[in-house]
């Protein structure tokens, strides 16, 4: 149902505050004493916190919401929920409860809100969790998301920096959702790409996470707004670098073409600005592929660093589950460049 939700227009999509503005505020905030049970979240500016409540249970608390990037309210609800739930899976957790976060113009058709929340609720149920209510605000534009609570064994939290040289990188979803929806806003995306992107964005990372539990995963992150290279950059550090096999990257069919047609996003360029000095592209990696690797993903897949001996088995199981997973690179001993794209 096209145009059911007014797409954000002009400069109105101020979905996120600029990093400069944000950090100026954040750095002045008071901090209480560090709680030893707070495992993740005290120093970082994550949108998730992990709190240990007993020797075998830690609680993961997270939230995520944003304005629509698609016209269909039901699908938008699914995408927003899938995206919010993903934070739990990126930490290796299990979804338990969720609360709706809703901003909605009172004068707008309430059926639209019903469809958004129906899409969201279905995804929480699919994740094995329960929607327990939420909070709604009368606002000038639509925004939706979830606050999610999950659990994880404190010793089995996936870190994003635990990767070791020799580990294999596995990505569980295709890249290119940002480019595809950018093209879609100007009427240049083909139907197949849009439906590919939508089905990818509404696929929970649940099964990927559960499958990965059987293997020696050393690090994990979900690929979202910073793009593939932005999130990979969070996995590499002084003790480990990465090599990316660009020809192995799973891609939404039309995405490279949209990059060649210059339909890249502002966020993609910010991602490029942010990480490019840590990345070396080999000569054969063309412009479109570079843009794809910087492309911000909405509800993207999980990126695992897994023990090399386990990689083929894990990949086979992910693919048998219907995921377009691929081995997209490997971690190496620290090199001159943090990330080399071949």
């Amino acid at each position: 149902m096209p145009e059911e939700i007014k797409f954000c227009t002009g400069g109105g999509c101020t979905a996120k505050l600029g990093p400069g503005i944000l950090s100026r505020v954040l750095e002045k905030l008071p901090k209480g004493p560090a709680d030893p049970r707070l495992l993740i979240g005290y120093d970082s500016r994550d949108d998730a916190a992990v709190y240990k409540i007993s020797d075998d249970t830690a609680v993961i608390q997270t939230l995520d919401f944003f304005p629509p990037m698609i016209e269909d309210p039901y699908v938008f609800g699914q995408v927003a929920a899938t995206n919010a739930l993903s934070d739990i899976y990126a930490m290796g957790g299990t979804v338990r409860t969720a609360l709706n976060i809703v901003c909605f113009p009172q004068q707008m058709d309430l059926d639209i809100l019903g469809k958004i929340m129906q899409g969201g609720s279905e995804k929480v149920i699919e994740a094995g969790g329960t929607v327990c209510g939420g909070h709604s605000i009368n606002d000038t534009s639509v925004k939706y998301g979830l606050s999610v609570m999950g659990t994880v064994h404190p010793d089995r939290i996936y870190s994003n920096i635990g990767g070791r040289p020799g580990d294999v990188l596995i990505l569980t979803k295709k890249l290119g959702t940002g480019l595809t929806f950018s093209a879609h806003t100007v009427g240049e995306a083909d139907e197949k790409s849009v439906s590919d992107a939508l089905s990818s964005m509404t696929t929970l990372n649940r099964s990927a996470c559960e499958i990965s539990r059987k293997y020696r995963v050393h690090a994990c992150t979900d690929v979202t707004g910073f793009g593939f290279l932005g999130h990979l950059a969070e996995m590499v550090h002084a003790n480990v670098s990465a090599v990316v096999f660009s020809d192995k990257i799973p891609v939404i069919s039309g995405a490279l073409g949209y990059a060649d047609a210059f339909l890249y996003t502002a966020a993609g360029q910010r991602n490029r600005n942010h990480v490019q000095e840590r990345v070396h592209f080999a000569e054969n990696v063309n412009f479109a592929m570079q843009e794809l690797l910087f492309d911000p993903q909405t509800s993207g897949g999980l990126l695992f660093a897994v023990h090399a001996e386990d990689a083929e088995g894990m990949l086979a199981e992910l693919r048998a589950d219907g995921l377009p997973a691929a081995i997209v690179g490997e971690l190496t001993a620290p090199g001159k460049n943090d990330i080399i794209v071949e």
Partner: peptide, 18 residues
């Protein structure tokens, strides 16, 4: 990247770029 660009992309779900 440190530019406080106030515009934002609806395609991006994350809330902050370092």
């Amino acid at each position: 990247a440190g530019t406080p660009g106030a515009d934002a992309s609806a395609a991006s779900a994350d809330t902050c770029i370092p």
